[in-house]
Write a protein that binds this DNA or RNA. Structure first.
Lengths: 309, 309
DNA sequence: ACATGCTATAGGTAAGTCCTATCGATCGTG
DNA sequence: CACGATCGATAGGACTTACCTATAGCATGT
């Protein structure tokens, strides 16, 4: 026993409109017995006579009159579905979802959304990045296809990283005396620090850089305060409660707004943080993801120093 | 290359809701590879990735998010279509079309509609019978499945007739003097008559009866006025412009309303008109048609003398 | 490292799709 | 009234699709 199908409805409608199986077959590009078979199958699945075979041609029954608008609605909905998918595929509509967290969002957050909307006015944009833990989870679970981040080191836990830019790490403080000369490893080891990205502390690239820097002096980094987001860290610096080390792009954006009294100075030797695309290892990226990567990279490179090689 | 199908949408929705091909297969009662194949086919026909295969389970893409409501609408419409057909099949809704013309509608017209609506409150009823020519055409073309008529003789032009009742033919006049005794063939041949059913005059059963009756006297019927419907004939009789011969049931219904001054009397010998079901020869009747025949027969038998054997 | 739970693949059978060829019935015509 | 034209139904066969079982491959959690 066959089941109701779109093909049957198509043949039914063509037959209804043409009043003839032969004409319907011609319209649909089939042989006449094929259409006849489909209509008969539809009548069998519905258990009702749709056409009265009357000498020359066929005549719809009242049940066929009843069915026709429904059949039209079904086929119309199918067409709408197909169009919706096609337009979503070509970014005329639909949603583009991308991860953007850590300090990366400071560089490419709002501006990246603007870039996407300028090029594809119909799309919705979801920039996922409330907190690092969630984003990591979404990436791992596959709900997020790709993300741009500033923090973790390369190659952890089945994820694949592609560096796109680097940004200098600077020392920020509300005490002008500490900003007169570049900060050495020794001075850094004595400082009282507030550091963001607590959740990612084990893999945070800023911390990794600092650890390597301090390792040469035989000391561990002194983090007096741990917070989750950079804004909070900067505010604490502005209040004079601690100093911190953050990417320069973040300092330029956040200090005037959140800590007007604070300033920044380079480390000595200069250290750099890496911005990278991260996605599941071995994944082939969708057009939407590739688009976001392209736009995000372009925007970041217009702010920080582009990665060489 | 396969084409978009309802089956694919069903599998897609189940997979979307379950977040798993295996779970979807279990829900649908299929083996897992079958659902997998359908989803893959849908992705191929749409040319887009709907799920990201990620280790344990599958995760819908944003295009799948876009497709889901459309797929639900399509399947919903299909369900509606199926329900509409089922309810039309069982007379809960839909249209019942039946032919009812000649003088038959005087007996069973409004009352028959009332009978149908009393038993099946949801249906629409179409009682086709504006004029005999149209109805004959609709029957021949198959648009009308069956009809109940009072006029034509049996067995003409590929149609099949089934008698269900007979009604006495009576002589009507506005002149009381002509109603004192039953009208003989001789008196009838002298009368000035108005006769309805002009279009069917060659096969009209009333006229056939009269012709046979008069043939015995060697005369032809004298129709002074020809009209299409019985009401007009009765009105003319009421105005004293002519007399007529019509079924008794029609006389009882129409005289008080349209010709209060007129009355009726039997013929001598009494003559009878036949009410019959007519449909295309060799046709198998639909439930709707059988229902109408049953109800029409019951109603007519409650008015005129039932046909014996 | 192992068991587990999921998807992908392979291969075979049943069923459906669509064709060509032909029959039967109907309708208009000479 | 026989004729050709037209349309739907039927038969039979080539091809495709649907669906199954069995199993491999991979990711995940203990």
């Amino acid at each position: 026993m066959t089941v109701l199908s779109l093909h049957q409805l198509t043949c039914f409608l063509a037959t209804y409109e043409q009043g003839s199986l032969t004409a319907a077959a011609e319209e649909l590009g089939y042989a006449q017995p094929s259409v006849s078979e489909q209509v008969r199958a539809l009548e069998k699945t519905l258990g009702v006579e749709l056409f009265r075979r009357v000498g020359r041609g066929v005549v719809p029954t009242t049940v066929a009159d009843e069915l026709r608008p429904h059949a039209e609605r079904v086929l119309g909905s199918v067409e709408e579905a197909r169009k919706a998918v096609q337009s979503a595929k070509s970014f005329e509509t639909g949603t583009i979802r991308f991860g953007m967290f850590g300090t990366a969002r400071l560089y490419a957050g709002a501006g990246l959304v603007a870039d996407v909307l300028a090029r594809y006015p119909g799309v919705r944009v979801e920039l996922i990045g409330q907190n690092s833990t969630d984003v990591q989870e979404e990436l791992r679970r596959g709900r997020l296809e790709a993300a741009m981040i500033a923090v973790p080191q390369m190659g952890s836990e089945g994820l694949e990283f592609t560096p796109v830019a680097r940004d200098e790490l600077v020392y920020i403080s509300a005490d002008p005396a500490r900003l007169e000369t570049p900060v050495s490893a020794h001075r850094l080891s004595l400082a009282s620090l507030v550091m963001p990205e607590t959740t990612w502390r084990a893999v945070d690239s800023t911390r990794l850089v600092l650890r390597q820097m301090l390792h040469e002096t035989g000391r561990n980094p002194q983090t007096r305060i741990e917070v989750e987001d950079v804004e909070t860290a900067v505010e604490l610096v502005g209040m004079g409660l601690a100093d911190s080390v953050i990417p320069r792009g973040a300092a330029e954006q956040l200090l005037p707004r959140l800590a007007p009294a604070a300033g920044w100075v380079s480390l000595r030797p200069r250290q750099y943080d890496t911005l990278a695309i991260v996605h599941r290892a071995g994944a082939t990226l969708s057009p939407a993801a590739r688009l976001m990567i392209e736009l995000a990279t372009a925007r970041i490179n217009s702010i920080v120093h582009p990665e060489m090689g």
